[in-house]
């Protein structure tokens, strides 16, 4: 545990000294702010014609999309940069186990992504003031639970993919491609026989119709936790096999 925490603290702190991480965080919050503003403004202008209050989906759905794009940028360096730097040799000859290293790295990035996600809570709070009689907090709680779980799964996969590359850009592109695949994989399978497995793997099937609208289903939670576990396991195996080369 102690080893994991040492790595995690270092990894989390690194985001706050890295200009790239600030840039990613800035763009994430900026884009989200613009979308939020546009949605609120649109419903305010339409208020006379078709009065409706914007729901929490105008915040949660864009965050999902943004997570697909920012997580690769925040996990790409985790192990790829260590390899490029030669510092991986140092970590792998320190008295820590490979899985402790991977969990430490994952936890650091997961905590940072979670931090960013929690900052976006300002939008539901703002929205609560804008609409009458306030928003339904149920979907906010389940939606943010889903976003945090999704962040855990994405960062775990990103960590594993970063372990495969010496080059951060390659790790970024590979992670992004993999996340996009996971996002849509259930869709082409619609209406085909034997498509359940692909539908199950598709993370959008575990979010938009359940957690995002206030339904907390253990099957969805298990899905995200198993993807996270898979990422950590795969990452540890990848680091381990690097030793044998």
């Amino acid at each position: 545990m102690r080893n994991i925490w040492i790595i995690t603290k270092r990894e989390y702190a690194r985001y706050f000294t890295s200009p790239a991480a600030y840039l990613v965080a800035f763009l994430y919050l900026l884009v989200l702010g613009i979308i939020f503003y546009a949605n609120v403004a649109a419903s305010a202008m339409n208020a006379f014609m078709r009065p409706y209050a914007p729901g929490i989906d105008i915040i949660i759905n864009p965050i999902t999309t943004l997570l697909v794009f920012i997580t690769p940028a925040l996990t790409m360096h985790l192990l790829a940069a260590e390899q490029r730097n030669g510092t991986l040799e140092l970590l792998l000859t320190a008295p820590i186990r490979d899985w402790e290293l991977i969990i430490g790295k994952w936890l650091g990035s997961f905590l940072f992504v979670t931090t960013l996600t929690l900052i976006t809570l300002v939008y539901p709070v703002t929205l609560n003031f804008l609409v009458k009689p306030g928003i339904d907090w149920g979907p906010v709680i389940s939606g943010y639970l889903g976003l945090i779980l999704m962040g855990a799964a994405f960062t775990a996969l990103g960590t594993a993919i970063s372990a495969m590359f010496n080059n951060q850009i390659a790790a970024f592109v590979a992670s992004l491609a993999f996340f996009l695949l996971l996002w849509i994989i259930g869709f082409p399978a619609h209406g085909l026989g034997g498509s359940e497995i692909w539908q199950y793997l598709d993370f959008s099937n575990h979010f938009y119709n359940t957690l995002a609208v206030g339904i907390i289903d253990t099957r969805d939670i298990i899905y995200y936790l198993s993807v996270t576990a898979f990422g950590i396991f795969a990452g540890s195996i990848i680091v381990e096999t690097r030793r044998w080369r």
Binding site: N85, G86, T87, L88, E89, L90, T93
Partner: peptide, 10 residues
């Protein structure tokens, strides 16, 4: 204690 050929520093 190990010092590799390319000094591993952050």
């Amino acid at each position: 204690g190990y010092l590799p050929e390319t000094v591993p520093l952050y």
